[in-house]
Design a binder for these strands. Sequence first.
RNA 1: GGGCGCAUAGCUCAGUGGUAGAGCACUGCUCUUACAAAGCAGGGGUCGGCGGUUCGAAACCGUCUGCGCCCACCA
Length: 875
Amino acid sequence: MNQRPRDGANSASDHLPTQYVPAEVEGKLYERWVEAGYFEADEKSDKPPYTVVIPPPNVTGSLHLGHAFEHTIIDSLTRRKRMQGYETLWQPGMDHAGIATQNVVERELAKEGVSRHDLGREKFVERVWQWKAESGGQISGQMKRLGDGVAWSRERFTMDEGLSKAVQTIFKRLYDDGLIYRAERIINWCPRCLTAISDIEVEYQEDDGELVSIRYGEGEDSIVVATTRAETMLGDTAVAVHPDDERYAHLVGREIELPLTGRRIPVVADAHVDPEFGTGAVKVTPAHDPNDFEIGRRHDLPSLTVLDEHGVITVHGPFQGLDRFEARSTIVGALRAEGRIVAEKRPYTHSVGHCSRCKTTIEPRLSMQWWVKVAPLAQAAADAVRDGRVDIHPKEMESRYFGWVDNLHDWCISRQLWWGHRIPVWYGPDGETVCVGPGEEPPTGEGWHQETDVLDTWFSSGLWPFSTLGWPGKTPSLEKFYPTSVLVTGYDILFFWVVRMMMFGLYAMDGTPPFRTIALHGMVRDQFGKKMSKSFGNAVNPLDWMDAYGSDAVRFTLARGANPGTDVPIGEDWVQGSRNFANKIWNATRFALMNGATVDGPLPPAAELSTADRWILSRLNATVAEVDAYYEDYQFARLSDALFHFAWDEVFDWYVELSKTTLAKGGAAADASRRVLGEVLDTTLRLLHPVMPFVTEELWTVLTGRESVVVAEWPSADASRRDEAAEKEIALLQQVITEVRRFRADQGLKPGQKVPARLVLDGTALTEHEDAIRAQARLTAPEDGFTATASLPVAGATVELDLSGAIDVAAERKRLAKDLALAEKEKAQATAKLGNDGFLAKAPEHVVEKIRTRLAAAEADIARITAQLESLPQA
RNA sequence: GGGCGCAUAGCUCAGUGGUAGAGCACUGCUCUUACAAAGCAGGGGUCGGCGGUUCGAAACCGUCUGCGCCCACCA
């Protein structure tokens, strides 16, 4: 590592090393923020509120890059609002994640050779709480590393006493309103988790199965059905055909023999059957298939359960005790032996449901469960978006939202688990059912017992935006911070979570939706756009990258990829790039400190400033306005990109270099420039702070000597500092410098090599920039015997260089020829356009004007380059 | 089976009617006193195919091809 002796011009910079080392500042800064109480929210404040609730992470897990991404967005939004003077609440907390957590703890127990049934319900739940204590701490630690500015004193957990009370309260209210009921239905049953799960917890995938055709009945009275789940035939209670299907009309209403069982079952006519599919006849198993259940209801068929909760055959006989998949082949074998298989079984790919938690094949099962009647709740949730009380970003996601809320089934909320909110219902000895509200005493006496099922985990997370604020109490926090300002979450849980919060929020909070805006983000993917997964080996632990490159680098990279609603690719190389950016900011600030940049006192009026100073202030204020607009539209990729280019290209590359010339001159101009330099760095650090909180805090406090950028004021754009003339002038200056550098590079001159040159700037806007041009292009003043061996006319000015005859004519010719070709192409295009009557007649004036300008520029270039070519010595 | 979306530089993606952009990667030269985690200069795209609208299309319309995602009770 190449460490140069430090320039001791400014004492404040003495303790800033030449490289930014995140590990040395991040932890220390976060602690300071927490101690100062910056992230706490005061419900008694007069400031306007800004509230965002965390999508509560599952307490079992650890945070992955998806969380890091989501937290970066939320943290940036809230940090900016805090700086803008809002009473900001970034509400932290975690979800008990019923089935997921129970599975994790069960796996832990399995390692010890113990099952949850060995422990019993009470002991098992105790174990889960223990697990929660460890795992939850890990998540908090990760959030601190990320820099999440959350109100730690308000941290909540869905199984907290307060939140449990909220669950009971709303359950009771829904129950009393007739919106919760108990009923026997076909549900999705996971034979491994041993619980019902809701429709959206089922993942469908294409599985290879086999379709077998089985002949039911005998002779004239026989009918062939096809199935992929042969084992369910033991539970068949009918065969269904389409009412208009003439092939089977003679059988409708008759009974036929069901093989292997000795039972006879009726043939019914039902419009659900598609006569075009297969044989046009369907076996009906009301207890094990949702469609068949409906058919059974319409025809008053009995439901015969033939599989237990483990998916094992319960019917007396040769198949009893067989697992469903064993039973499938065994039964097909038995049917074949009886000559019932009419066509060989054939491969058949079809969509099969799997448990989203353990991937086990779902078994539809008839079962008594608790349900939420969602129609009225969903209607309200749909209306709130339709009438604009809630906005969905990006807009395209609205159709998905409506697609769901407009067509939904009742929500199965009971789970046969031990970890979760136990349903507050007691059953009496004579079949009584009592729903017990919070604070009410459950019925006592012989025979009374509480429902053993717990609630779906989304039932409690649906209350999150108000349960965390103290509901059902009418707390000052609830008054102040509800409704929340924006919900930031992934589109993948739009249905799981967002819709539930909408339904419950509107219901519990008297029609006030839980948030004004729903900002949906995409999923984090690897740098090739592939989904991150442990099994694929491309999953990344965000901590590893934060250790290596700093949290700011990870955050900034994620923010740069955040185009609304689209997935976010991220690769280690890109994080490195962001780390480099952080380092660049670090060193630019060091430069400012070494050169005595000042931040106090009014900014000098434009009249006292150099063109470069006026230019950078103009660009600065344009950038503030731009960044503000992007924030309001949740355009993180754009705002990050705008900041990146403004900071690096304009401030660090051009402005810092140009300021060196002014600063070297000394005097009032240098003083003014030092003030502008301080202003630009100060403001840029503020603008970057929400996305890159650590490096900006460290630098800003040193630069300004003030307490913390966390509570600094967010910059506001000052339109009066916009200066079009200065912007044009600097653009011209950049053009001249770039042109000389290009020439130098083509001539093979070393970057450090000084070249004598005469600048002819009369009549251009560049007269005051001669020193800057010389400094930036490494040109010295012409000495005695100066001979111009090369002449570069650009933008009206001319730079004459003395290469003492050493000019590489061939290289120069090549360069000029290329430029000439480009200019001629340009001229041809512009001429063609201007010769087009249609264009002249219909194009707007400013476009025509632009083309004319382009043509003139091309012609000037051609003249210039031709002259240069002619002036070159003959080879 | 419906619905939505995407095909732009080697990779990942912006750009939505008026001369093709970014990051990373790539090439060359440089430790030029904030920074080699850097500086300067540069190479690279007939914007998936075809047809149409228009003075003008990467952008709008149609169509084809390929690829995603969501929803759905075809045994």
